[in-house]
Amino acid sequence: MELFIQQLVSGISIGAIYSLLAVGYALVYSVYNFTNWAFDGFMAFGAFMAFTGITSLFMPFWLAALLSIVLTVILSVGTEKLAYNPLRVRKAPRLFMMISAMGVNLATVNIINLIYGGTFRKFPVDNLQPIFIKGVSIGRMDLMAGGISFGVLALLWIFLYRTKWGLGIRASSIDILTASLMGINNNAVAMIVFAITGVLSSVAGVFYGIKYAVFPMMGVVTIKAMIASIVGGLGSLPAAIVGSMILGILETLVSGYISSTYRDLFSFLFLIIILLFFPNGLMGKSSDEKL
C-alpha cells in the first residue's frame, strides 16, 4: 500500500510535468495546426539556463528559475518571429512550419551540446529530505514540481477563459482570419502563444532536470508529452492534461511494480491500445473543441 501511494504521488508529479509540455504542444497546435518540435530544445535550454544561473552565476534557485523563464520566452518568441512568422505571412503549408521547428530543435540541442558537452549533470539543488506521512515517504521535489506545475496550468486556464486576451486566442484557434477581422492582432496572438510555450517549456525543463538530470538530449522526453496529448485528444488543453496524468501515473506504477526498463514499452503499448479504440484520443472530438 505504501509503495502504491508513493508511486501515485510520484506519478502525479511526473504527470504534471508532462502536462506542461503537452499543453504547450496543444496550444500551438490548436492555433497554428502544426506540431512545434522546437519545444524539445526549448525545454533543454530552459534547464541549462537555470543550471548555469546556479552554478556559474551563484544565483539562488528561484532567481535562476526566473532567469530561465525569461530567456526561454525570448528564445520561443524569437523563433516565432524569425522562423514561423515569415512562413505564416507567405501562407506556407503547415508541414513547412513543422520542418522549420525540427531545424530549430536540432540547432538548439546541438548548440547546447557544443557549449556544455553531452554529459549528464545533476541539477544543483540541495538534497531535500522526503516527508514521511504514516510511513509513506513523499519527495519534497515531487510535491513542489506537482504544485508549481498545477499552479502554472491554473494561471493559464484563468488567462484563457477569464481574460479578453484569452478570448482572442480562443477565437484565433477557431478561425484566425475571422478573428483578425474582428480586430484581433494576429501577431500579438502569436507572441502571446509562443511566450506561454516558452514559460511552459522552461518550467518543465527545470523540474525534469531536478527529477532526473540535465543533459542536451533531455528534451526527448517531450515525446511522452506528445503521447499524452494524443491519448487525451490532440489540440485540446484539458485532454492534454488528462492524458498526461494517466501516462505519468501509468509509468510510475509500471516502474514500481514491474520494472523501470519496461516503462517506455508500456507507454507506447498504451498509446497503441488507446488509438485502436479511441482514434481521436480519449476526449478528442476531432477538431470541435480545441482550447
Partner: peptide
C-alpha cells in the same frame, strides 16, 4: 456565416469589444 461556433453567443459578441478597453494583464489577474 463565420461565427465562432464553439463559443457562446455572448462570447462571440464580447470578442468584438476586444480592442477597446484598456487594462493590463496584471489588473485582469
Amino acid at each position: 456565416i463565420r461565427l465562432f461556433p464553439q463559443m457562446t453567443a455572448y462570447e462571440n459578441v464580447e470578442l468584438g469589444f476586444h480592442s477597446e478597453p484598456h487594462y493590463s494583464l496584471a489588473e485582469a489577474f
